[in-house]
Design a binder for these strands. Structure first.
Length: 467
RNA sequence: GGUGCGAUACCCAAGUGGCCUAAGGGGACGGUCUGCAAAACCGUUUUUUCAUCGGUUCGAAUCCGAUUCGCACCUCCA
């Protein structure tokens, strides 16, 4: 298995700490709004990674957090708490908001056939773990208190910014944001707030530094170490997390333990909307539900994500999504045909095995999903492979792709239309039999007016709704 | 201001020194089937071409340099 490691900026051979096992932590959603399809792209990438690791023979322990607490829009005490803002706008409590969007998130994940992480941990359930970690940092001399808040001092360690390759001296901190005057170094960050500019926070907890709430990096360090140990294999997230969030996670984690925290850093690239990234703040906000409402299947979007490499920006467009939809539906239809012809063979032929291996090789080479997909299509169209072997190989591949092909059923188009419509359809069949083609065509036109296409399949005529 | 990344045929998108006269999908077109369509299946479509210009090399989409355009990051963001 080969994986690109952001830390080394190279594709490396993956070697787990414990042979046969992989510990993986993925940054989860901040639940103050729906996930947009750009967010979802990252979770699809992580799901594919997990499935590929399993294929490569590892058992995977996958942990993901839910950020359901005071997540300020700024790293300093500026900006506004997203949870609070969302709660105020909707007239609900912050706890309701968190619950609501957490549910919505997992509904999306299910639709997308994303395997649920082994452990999903809420930040609000782990405040004590965070406090313990901050204490440990305090004891190690990595913190200071100013203006009522506890800060991490980046000058207390000597390799701050190694993941992002930040050149501290040349950074223009404060060029675009207001500098928190409490900070000794502009890149210092808050571990614990007791004195927010924003009074009346609903979510606060007692701590050795006073009642307050955690800074926004500490949860990932505390929870990942709790469930995976102080040294684990893989940490994933979106590329945007590299310069600040992951950089600060590394700083506080390694300052606390005094040793390497994570071996492999894997980051998913952004989904672009038109020519700009999709984001919650700057418009172009498309959710999975938006796509479902337009008549797409969630797996059309999953397929679309698979057509691009996870480390490349992918441009979203409805044109491209339509292409993915057509491709995926074609695939499903072929699989249904194969299923009608044969059961998956238990011992695929050499040729089929070659396709499977080529597929696995592509996936295990830094998740080259587009190449792997092309293997799938070549297999499907290969006239020398039997239906039984094709099915077996397709199922094997789909364990990673997650397109639900084993369960795939041809869309039930017979059920479409009213009784009256179906009666007309029968009439047409009769007219055709009697070679009254004029009448048959009239009926077809009538059905078209009613919104249906007539398809004559080997198993008889069916109606299909015109979209 | 600083730092990265990218530009591939009608569209999306792989490929990053010779197996590339560029994978795969979509679209379009043609054929088979059909009374005719639709659907399905098969095929064609890109045939020295991979932003532009120059260079390295026996050999470049792939390496180097310059140019143009686009994107991202240094602010919250997946």
């Amino acid at each position: 298995m080969k994986l690109y490691n952001t830390m080394s900026r190279r594709i490396e051979d993956f070697v787990p700490i414990v042979p046969g096992h992989v510990s993986m932590y993925c940054c989860g959603p901040t639940v103050y709004n729906y996930a947009h399809i750009g967010n979802l792209r990252t979770y699809i990438f992580e799901d594919i990674l997990k499935r590929t690791l399993r294929r490569a023979g590892y058992s995977v322990k996958h942990v993901m957090n839910i950020t359901d607490v005071g997540h300020l829009t700024g790293d300093g005490d500026d900006g506004e708490d997203k949870m609070e803002k969302s709660a105020r706008e909707s007239g609900k409590t912050v706890w309701d908001i968190a619950e609501f969007y957490t549910k919505a998130f997992f509904r999306d994940e299910e639709e997308l056939d994303i395997i649920r992480p082994d452990i999903v941990c809420r930040a609000t359930d782990h405040i004590n773990d965070m406090i313990a970690l901050i204490k440990r940092l305090e004891e190690g001399g990595h913190t200071y208190t100013a203006g009522g808040n506890v800060y991490f001092s980046i000058d207390s360690i000597d390799d701050y910014g190694k993941l992002a390759r930040l050149n501290i001296d040349e950074l223009k901190s404060g060029a675009r944001i207001e500098v928190d005057s409490n900070k000794k170094n502009p890149k210092d960050f808050v571990l614990w707030f007791t004195n927010s500019k924003f009074a009346g926070q609903a979510m606060t907890w007692d701590s050795p530094w006073g009642r307050g709430y955690p800074g926004w990096h500490i949860e990932c360090s505390a929870m990942s170490m709790k469930y995976l140990g102080e040294h684990f294999d893989i940490h994933c997230g979106g590329i945007d997390a590299i310069p600040v969030h992951h950089t600060n996670e590394i700083a506080q984690s390694e300052a606390a333990t005094g040793k390497t925290w994570v071996n492999y850093w894997c980051h998913g690239e952004f989904l672009l909307m038109g020519n700009a990234k999709m984001s919650k703040s700057s418009g172009g906000f498309v959710t999975l539900q938006t796509l479902l409402d337009k008549g797409y299947n969630a797996l059309d979007y999953r397929y679309f994500c698979l057509t691009g490499h996870y480390r490349s920006q992918l441009r979203f467009s409805y044109e491209a999504l339509d292409a993915a939809k057509s491709a995926r539906e074609g695939l499903v239809e072929r699989v249904c045909q194969l299923k009608a012809e044969a059961a998956p063979s238990s011992a695929p032929s050499e040729k089929a095995a070659e396709y499977m291996k080529a597929f696995d090789d592509a996936m295990e080479n830094d998740l080259s999903a587009p190449q792997a997909l092309s293997m799938l299509w070549k297999l499907v169209k290969d006239g020398e492979v039997s239906s039984a072997d094709k099915l077996a190989a397709i199922y094997h591949m789909d364990e990673i792709l997650g397109l639900d092909l084993a369960k795939a059923e041809a869309p039930k188009k017979e059920a479409v239309g009213t009784e009256d419509d179906l009666k007309l359809l029968e009439e047409r069949t009769a007219a055709k039999k009697a070679k009254d083609f004029k009448r048959a065509d009239e009926i077809r036109d009538e059905l078209k007016r009613r919104g249906f296409n007539v398809k004559d399949t080997p198993s008889g005529p069916i109606l299909e709704r015109i979209e």
